Structure formats: C-alpha cells, structure tokens
Computed example of a mutant assay.
Amino acid sequence: MDTPKSKKLDIIIPAFRGHSQNFVMVLDGISEEDALKRIEGRTNHIIWMVGNFLDMRDAMGNVLGIEDEFEFKEYFSQGKALDESFKYPTLQQLKDSFHKISPLVYQKLLEVSDEDLEKAFPMGMNIDFFPEDVLNFVGMCIGREDYLSGQVGLMRRILGYEGMKYDFDENMKY
C-alpha cells in the first residue's frame, strides 16, 4: 500500500481505494438502459448516483488543489436533485470520467500535508463537534461515496442483477 505524507490519512487511503474498487464492481454488467431506471418514480437512477459519486471525487480534488473540473458538473454539483428534463451523460461516459479523476485525487491524497489538511474549509454546518477543515471535508466525501455505493448496490438487486462480486483488481492503483 502507498504511504501518505500525512498520517491523518492512514484510514482514508484504503477507504478511497476500496471505494474505487467498489465503484467498478457495483456497476459491472449494468446496462445503459437500466442505469436510467427509477423505481416507482421515487428513486434517483443509477446515472444520478454515479454522477454524484464523481462530484464527490471532484470536490475532494478541488479542495486538495486539482483545478480540473468534472465535465458533467452541471448535472450533479453539490447533490443537485435529479431533473428528468436533463439528458444525462451515459454510464460509460461517467465511468471514463471516474478513471480520469480518481488517479489524480489519489495522488493528491498521498501528497497532502498535515498543515493543508488542518486549513479551515467552511461548510456552513455550524456543528460544535465537527471542525470545518479540509480533513473533515475529505472524510465527508468518503462517507458520501459509501452511501452512494450502497444505493447503487441496492438498485442493482432491485433491477434483477446479481449482487456485487468482490473481484478486486490488484492492478488498479487508485
């Protein structure tokens, strides 16, 4: 395993890599058509969930100094609600974006210093037990990725797909 510059990220690095693996595995075999299905018009579709996952990766990258913008930000930024009038990107386009941004964010996570992680990052939460800094923002993004992966996993089963297989790709280094 890669060693981050900051010991504060010892738990984040394996979580990030695990989420990258989960992202690939939970989407395995999902068709483009099924990725746009909603359940009884009440759920988000998988495309929205995947786009929101990528928005989290983009947000982490931005707070760590990556200036690239997620090319589909207009659809997903800050958890923007699903809008059925949008022509969302395809699942394949989102997978391609994932493989573009994830290695960049991973490298930044390895390089970031304690000082940079301790920098204030106002989120407007105003919760006394939650310091609003870069480290906690990264942690929130990781938590959101967990949540979204679980949602996609549930949608996968509802749509009649087998449960996710845990076939980790040892060659994926992010």
Rank of each mutant, 00 (worst) to 15 (best):
residue 62 N to D: 09
residue 62 N to S: 13
residue 65 G to M: 01
residue 66 I to K: 04
residue 67 E to T: 02
residue 70 F to E: 02
residue 70 F to S: 00
residue 70 F to W: 00
residue 71 E to L: 01
residue 73 K to Y: 00
residue 76 F to Q: 08
residue 79 G to P: 02
residue 81 A to T: 09
residue 81 A to G: 07
residue 82 L to S: 06
residue 83 D to H: 04
residue 84 E to L: 11
residue 84 E to S: 11
residue 88 Y to V: 03
residue 91 L to D: 02
residue 92 Q to D: 12
residue 94 L to Q: 10
residue 94 L to D: 03
residue 94 L to F: 06
residue 96 D to G: 10
residue 96 D to V: 10
residue 98 F to P: 03
residue 101 I to P: 01
residue 102 S to C: 04
residue 102 S to Y: 01
residue 102 S to N: 04
residue 102 S to E: 00
residue 103 P to Y: 03
residue 104 L to T: 12
residue 107 Q to K: 15
residue 108 K to Q: 06
residue 108 K to D: 00
residue 108 K to I: 01
residue 109 L to C: 06
residue 111 E to Q: 15
residue 111 E to T: 13
residue 113 S to H: 12
residue 113 S to A: 12
residue 114 D to I: 09
residue 114 D to M: 11
residue 115 E to H: 10
residue 117 L to P: 05
residue 118 E to N: 13
residue 119 K to A: 12
residue 121 F to H: 14
residue 121 F to V: 04
residue 122 P to N: 07
residue 122 P to A: 03
residue 122 P to D: 05
residue 124 G to I: 03
residue 124 G to D: 08
residue 125 M to P: 09
residue 126 N to A: 08
residue 128 D to W: 13
residue 130 F to P: 13
residue 130 F to W: 15
residue 133 D to S: 14
residue 136 N to I: 02
residue 137 F to Q: 02
residue 137 F to Y: 09
residue 138 V to H: 04
residue 139 G to C: 10
residue 142 I to R: 11
residue 144 R to E: 15
residue 144 R to H: 15
residue 146 D to P: 13
residue 147 Y to F: 09
residue 148 L to P: 12
residue 150 G to P: 09
residue 154 L to S: 12
residue 154 L to D: 09
residue 155 M to Y: 12
residue 156 R to P: 05
